Simulated scan of single mutants.
Amino acid sequence: LGLHAICFFLNLVEILNLYVCFTLVIPAEFTKALQNQEVKEGESVTLMCEYSIPGVQFVWRKGLETLKSSEKYHMRQRKSCISLIIHNLKPEDSGNYTCICRDQRTMATLTVNGIDIDCYENKIIVFSFDLKLRNQMAEEGNSIILHCEISKPDTPVQWRKGSNLLRSGEKYKIRQRGCMLELKIFNLTQDDSGVYSCTSETTETSANITVSGKLVQFTSKGYQ
């Protein structure tokens, strides 16, 4: 019985040595590289690669910028698989993305195409405003609503007064529902008079708003 135990122990040691040697010769490298991708604005994309050693630490970069997990970027790792999910893509998200593990790296190019222009049956359609802004007059102290409609639902737009970009707040309320676009201006003053515009990347509509001062009424009392 003692001899059998010794033989079993020696065989076990030999198996462990072979396992250790096999483990040590596994090369540390990317077994699946990143692939170039081309997607549309507003979509999400997943960049994925695989590394030979599971659970290894990794870093994602766009150009020279190191990326961190956020609402924009979602980083995942499952065994040897490493992925980066980019949400709500915009044209400025285009560029070179790199995954770095130890001293190894893999890179791919992401191209994000804008959504203002679509192609149907080899025809290029440029989205336009079906309902344009109209000139309006209002009295000081009141509110006013500017509205228009664009042919492509949920197209990104910007509202401006002259060259100044407008944002929602106490003074302005910006709404977009499908094709309908709306700007509401509160507590009007004569300084709010001017040209207001709604623009996308390829089209624009504008209107002139005139704010008049409040009429002051004088009352006279008779004297006896």
Rank of each mutant, 00 (worst) to 15 (best):
L84E: 03
G169T: 05
C198Q: 13
S128Y: 13
C7G: 00
L12P: 00
C148R: 06
T46I: 15
F8W: 08
E14Q: 14
G222E: 06
K123F: 04
K68W: 09
R78P: 00
S206E: 10
A33G: 00
V45H: 10
L18I: 11
V45Q: 08
L84D: 01
H4K: 14
Q77P: 03
S163T: 12
G169W: 10
G55P: 02
T189P: 02
T210E: 08
K214A: 04
E50G: 00
S83T: 13
A28L: 10
T111F: 09
I117R: 09
N17Y: 10
C81G: 10
P153C: 09
I145K: 13
Y73K: 00
F129C: 11
H87A: 12
S206M: 09
S83C: 09
E38Q: 12
I100R: 01
F8Q: 15
I144R: 06
D118V: 11
N96C: 03
Y19L: 15
N122S: 11
S200T: 15
N113Y: 05
T210F: 11
R105N: 14
D103Y: 07
A33E: 10
Y120T: 11
S143M: 06
N113W: 04
G169S: 13
V20L: 11
T31V: 15
T189K: 05
V195W: 02
N142M: 06
K161L: 10
M137E: 15
R177C: 01
T106F: 03
D191K: 06
M75A: 04
G63E: 10
L110I: 05
P27H: 04
I117C: 07
S197A: 04
D103E: 15
A138S: 15
K68R: 14
K123E: 12
K173A: 07
Y172I: 10
I124T: 08
Q176A: 08
T155A: 12
V112W: 03
N113I: 12
I115E: 04
Y172G: 08
G2T: 13
L18C: 08
Q190M: 15
V25A: 08
S151L: 07
L188C: 11
Q35S: 09
T189F: 01
F30I: 06
Q176P: 01
L89D: 09
S70E: 02
C99S: 03
I15T: 13
C119L: 14
T66H: 01
P27E: 06
N88M: 12
N11Y: 08
Y19D: 05
S200M: 00
Q224R: 10
I209E: 01
E149C: 06
G95H: 12
F127K: 11
G114Y: 05
L131Q: 14
Q217S: 11
I86L: 12
K90H: 06
Q158I: 13
P156E: 02
C49E: 07
E43H: 03
N88A: 14
K79G: 02
I185H: 04
N122R: 13
F218R: 14
S163G: 00
A5E: 15
R61F: 03
I145Q: 12
E43D: 11
T199E: 14
M107N: 05
G194V: 04
K68I: 13
K72G: 00
F186M: 14
E182L: 03
T202H: 07
L110R: 05
N208E: 06
L183R: 08
T106K: 02
E92T: 12
G213I: 07
Q35C: 04
T189S: 01
Q224A: 09
D191T: 04
V13G: 00
C7N: 07
K152G: 00
A108P: 04
V59N: 03
M180T: 10
L24V: 02
I125V: 13
